[in-house]
Design a protein around this nucleic acid. Sequence first.
DNA 1: CCGTCGAGGTTTTACGTATAACGTGATGGT
DNA 2: ACCATCACGTTATACGTAAAACCTCGACGG
Lengths: 348, 348
Amino acid sequence: MAHRSQQDRPPAGADSARPTSRDVARAAGVSQATVSLVLGDKWRGRVSERTAAVVREAAQDLGYRPNLAARNLRLGRTRTALLVVPALTNEFFARVYTGAAAVAARHGFGVVLYPSPEGVGPAKDPFASARAALDGVIASSMAAQALTAIRGSDLPLVMLDSDPADTGAAAHVNLDIADGMRQVTDHLTALGHRRIVHLSSAVASWTFDVRARALHEAAARAAGTEVCTVPAPLDVDSAREAAVRALTAPGPRPTAVVCDDDILAAGACKAARRLGLRVPEDVSVTGFDDLALATAVEPELTTVRLPAEQVGERGMDALLAVLDGRRPEERSLPVELVVRGSSAPPPV
Amino acid sequence: MAHRSQQDRPPAGADSARPTSRDVARAAGVSQATVSLVLGDKWRGRVSERTAAVVREAAQDLGYRPNLAARNLRLGRTRTALLVVPALTNEFFARVYTGAAAVAARHGFGVVLYPSPEGVGPAKDPFASARAALDGVIASSMAAQALTAIRGSDLPLVMLDSDPADTGAAAHVNLDIADGMRQVTDHLTALGHRRIVHLSSAVASWTFDVRARALHEAAARAAGTEVCTVPAPLDVDSAREAAVRALTAPGPRPTAVVCDDDILAAGACKAARRLGLRVPEDVSVTGFDDLALATAVEPELTTVRLPAEQVGERGMDALLAVLDGRRPEERSLPVELVVRGSSAPPPV
DNA sequence: CCGTCGAGGTTTTACGTATAACGTGATGGT
DNA sequence: ACCATCACGTTATACGTAAAACCTCGACGG
């Protein structure tokens, strides 16, 4: 039989069923409609101050909590947004979520996460797994396969850090990734680096394409600069292996490793150390994102700080704007080069 | 006047209203009830194979998607669980979420996260912010303040990594933290360490109390071992500062720093380096959790591997069991000492 | 020839809320 | 004196689904 160990909270309470607005109404001696008006703050001029107080007290006493499912059904909206990111274990996306959830909460919204594909398998109906009925979707460009499923629905879609030319999204929230990569490259070429390895993400995504393009363009402005691109999966060990290969390739050794992500940069540092090279004396390494990792490793990473929380905040802001019929602002977020200990002039 | 800016949704889409089961019924030439039966897989022996096929095709054609709010209202449950953790930016909790969400998805459940307190401020009604109606709660012991609010509700509660003596929870999922700390301590004392600093978390939580107790007990078994506890907030810089103080305190210098968390350990390594000490030659450092960080820093951290995903999986399993009236299994999860490069015999 | 049964549906209801539509007595202006 | 207004509520309804209760028709046993 069903255990109901929780159930016996109030000894007397024969029915532990959650009280409804009707129960409150009965207790307060008014109609259910009045309860709804009072608790919904729509009673100004329709219900007396006294009655409202009585209702509120009754609700308090009974521990009334509105049934969200019923409300959502009635209103036809749920005040819930879906956030689609590749993996929360990536600090960047955890921070995006945090920002989005904070803004959402301020507006009485909730944020649910798209179930990460790994571990679930190819869900037949991806939306069914995101149990909540949704008002809109915020998606990172890095969650490509999930997106195809989502585009089918007619939910408002806000894209994060993705190709602005992509129609089909109601709004875009972008980072000035190109500027960040340009700053990194200029920083290195100014230090004198001319042989650069680009340790790029093996994941295909707009955000990485932009990095590559900006790096090559900026490098082209410093005469005689060579850039060699090496892709690697987004984890430290894979990055280390790829970096070892890049640093031991035939020909003169590169003097700088520009990474698409701090995680890759950490791997590059380990590769250097494993090859007996010092960072930054023998080889410079730069990251991207400015995760906690960037200051946890030694030397601390020169990297590009991305306002991850702001991405989430602006994403949610944009979605709220769209839902409201307003036009979301489309200014891209500035990024900042943070010079730390992992970059220095190349060896002579 | 009531604003109705939402109303005129899509300029072009004449009827963009989502089809309901009644629409499907009309299209298939059957009643709504039949649609519900067929799509709910409850039609064996009640609807003919042919009719069922017709219904399914109609649903497919219309792109029918059941209204979750209506279903939840009707069924009185939502197949949604709340996961309460202090912060997703902590990789451990991101992994717990991942595990819980994977199991949940396999059972048609969703997982929503409790809105992190920071950025939201003290929510008057914390549940309202978790927009979804909930079937149950899974909570980490580290999210103390949120818990008091949650205990008030009569939702089934599964506690993670928390005091098993705590009644009020329908189930507990615990890690054998004490065993982990014992292994760390034995490892260090076997190497010859006798002056140990315990860099502990400043957050008060059962899981850290257990670490402290186990460390002291294990240390007491190695004659002449001193343990000095220093608390620090859970970030690299704070940990570094605390570790610097501990390593420069009057008296003979400690030869090992045992940390409650890999993040603290990373800080301790930085402190050592800053003081001109080598890890592990001059001072050993151990972590806890085995986050990605542990192998990103150099030297790689000796630490205790916690099966974070499993914690989430088992937590969800337990909640499902409770909701099902079954008795959840209460075996605690084993942990494993991982010896890497940050621990070695003390200097002579 | 009647009662029963089973297959294959349909009608109806309830879930809890928000709100449009509808009283109702008292006040007030002319 | 009488309608208009107002202040304060109430009644009634719809949201979309799941499922209990109810029909209808043919077959079949006795």
